Simulated scan of single mutants.
Amino acid sequence: MTQKIRDVMTPGPVTVPRLASVRDTARWMRDAAVGDVLVAGEDDRVYGLVTDRDPVVRVLADGRHPDSTRVGDVCSTELVGVAPDDAIGDAVDLMRRHALRRLPVLDDGRAVGVVSLGDLAMDRDPGSALADISAAAPDS
């Protein structure tokens, strides 16, 4: 039987409203010990994704202020996602084709999880260095 995305995804992704400030978003990421959050629109549908790298590259480097810049203005909005019942191989193919490290898992446009390269490595090759790194506790 083919394994499904729901079998390997990280459920309950951190989401932030698209009108949240970049600083508040960075705090949510820090407090949740995650490197990415999904950005939700007013209807709770996923609007975009922001990584821990985005505030540096898209805000600070451009001279913008993290308190007055809204995360919806700097997040990636052209998302590639998967559904919980999609096959794991589909996620691998999408990540490879689009050079992505993580994919939102969407159910009717709403976030139910995230599947990352690390999640897939722990499932497909649990002895690999990437699986070991992904399984380790995050630095504080």
Rank of each mutant, 00 (worst) to 15 (best):
Q3H: 13
Q3T: 10
Q3K: 08
I5T: 03
I5H: 01
I5D: 00
R6V: 09
R6D: 08
R6C: 12
R6N: 10
D7I: 05
V8D: 08
M9P: 01
T10K: 14
P11I: 01
G12M: 13
P13I: 00
P13R: 00
T15L: 01
V16C: 02
V16D: 01
V16I: 13
P17E: 04
L19D: 15
S21Q: 11
S21Y: 14
S21I: 06
V22M: 04
V22G: 01
V22L: 03
R23D: 14
R23F: 08
D24K: 11
T25D: 02
T25N: 02
T25F: 04
A26R: 04
A26F: 14
R27M: 07
R27Q: 07
R27C: 10
W28N: 04
M29Y: 12
R30Q: 09
R30N: 13
A32Q: 11
A33G: 11
G35F: 02
G35I: 03
G35L: 02
D36Y: 07
D36K: 12
D36M: 10
D36P: 02
D36A: 15
V37Y: 05
V37M: 06
L38I: 12
L38A: 05
L38N: 03
V39G: 00
V39S: 01
A40T: 12
G41S: 10
G41H: 08
E42T: 12
E42P: 11
V46I: 15
V46H: 00
V46P: 00
Y47E: 13
G48V: 00
L49I: 15
V50Y: 11
D52Q: 07
D52E: 13
D54C: 03
D54Q: 05
D54I: 06
V56E: 07
V56G: 04
V57A: 08
V57C: 06
R58D: 01
R58H: 08
V59P: 02
L60Q: 07
L60R: 11
A61Q: 12
A61M: 09
D62E: 15
G63P: 06
R64H: 08
H65L: 10
H65F: 12
H65M: 12
H65A: 14
P66L: 06
P66W: 04
D67F: 09
D67E: 15
D67Q: 12
S68G: 14
S68A: 15
T69C: 02
R70N: 04
R70P: 01
R70E: 10
G72D: 06
V74F: 05
V74A: 06
S76W: 00
T77K: 11
T77Y: 01
T77M: 13
L79Q: 03
V80W: 13
G81D: 10
A83R: 12
A83G: 14
A83I: 04
A83E: 12
P84W: 03
P84I: 02
D85C: 03
D85Q: 09
D86T: 08
D86V: 12
I88E: 05
I88P: 03
I88A: 14
G89Q: 15
G89M: 10
